[in-house]
Simulated scan of single mutants.
Amino acid sequence: MILNIKNRKRNFILVSPIVVILLGFITATTCSKVIDEWAWVPLAIVYWSSLGICIKYFKGNKQIKDWLKKPQPSKLMVFFSLILGFFPMSVVMTNYELFNSIWLVVLWLLFAIINPFFEELYWRGLLLDAAMELFPKWIAMAYSTIFFVLSHPLMWGVFSIANAHYHVFIYLTILGVVWSYTYFQTQSLRWVILSHFFVDIGIMTVPVFLNLYVPPNV
């Protein structure tokens, strides 16, 4: 009986990305018709709420502190994670003039602080752990990364020009693979969350959502 419940929870976790992305797509599509690019606000609320619900009710015996425990040493993967995190910093450094409103700065920083925790606890924590129960490591990593990548154009890309561009697919695929492998090697999400924070800072998430910044050739 207990095993059946555990298996059902695992199976729900494995199909949950479809539900999460569908809810996000519906929210983005509906709200963007009314408030245009500001649809990112209700989308973020719905997205984080759906991830939070999945984490809270389907993590089983795993505790959030288990995902955030002290990392095992893995200098190479930590190095790659941080390099990828710092890579887009040139974007914010060369476009800082876009932050001409204190509220824009506050929203940008809040998103960069909150988003990495929800996304990493779900994509690299809950989902990757569940996939590892059924699949070899590389398939589990691919499974998590594919849905992680698709979530961006299918949700944020509804109203954000940059998030629908193929460059996003390439960069996010690299991030998903490196972050997944970093989690495997360190057995913790600490470095992954930190790298994700730097990425969200560097790519100027909120100005990108609002199409205040559209990368060249996009």
Rank of each mutant, 00 (worst) to 15 (best):
Y96V: 15
I114T: 08
F86S: 12
Y96C: 01
W108A: 10
F80G: 05
I114Y: 00
N115H: 04
N100R: 09
L127Y: 09
F79T: 15
M93R: 00
M89C: 06
F118A: 11
V106T: 11
L121F: 10
V92N: 09
V105W: 01
L84G: 13
S101R: 09
V106K: 05
S101A: 09
L110Y: 00
L109D: 03
I102P: 11
F118Q: 06
L126C: 08
L82M: 14
S90L: 14
A112K: 00
N100Q: 10
E119W: 04
N95H: 14
V92H: 04
W103M: 11
N100A: 12
W103C: 01
P116S: 02
F111I: 14
L110I: 13
I83C: 11
F111S: 14
N100I: 04
E97N: 12
I113W: 09
L109Y: 05
L107E: 12
L127E: 10
L109F: 11
T94N: 14
W103T: 07
L127A: 07
W123K: 07
I114E: 04
N100E: 11
L110P: 04
L98G: 11
R124N: 03
S101M: 05
L98V: 12
L104T: 02
I113G: 07
L82Y: 10
L104D: 04
Y122Q: 03
T94I: 00
V92R: 07
W123R: 09
N100K: 12
P116K: 07
F79L: 15
L98C: 00
F80A: 11
N95P: 00
E97C: 05
N115C: 07
M93L: 15
V92L: 11
L127F: 07
F80R: 07
V106W: 06
S90W: 14
G125C: 06
W103R: 05
L110Q: 06
E97L: 12
T94A: 10
E120F: 00
L109V: 13
V105K: 02
L107P: 00
F99S: 02
N100D: 12
R124M: 02
L98W: 04
L109Q: 08
I102D: 04
L110W: 05
L98A: 04
S81L: 14
L121V: 08
F86A: 15
G85R: 09
L121C: 06
P116T: 05
S101E: 10
W123Y: 09
F118K: 07
G125P: 03
V105Q: 01
S81C: 13
W103N: 12
P88W: 07
V91P: 00
F87G: 07
L107T: 15
T94E: 14
M89R: 07
I102K: 13
F79K: 15
F118E: 07
M93K: 10
M89K: 09
T94P: 04
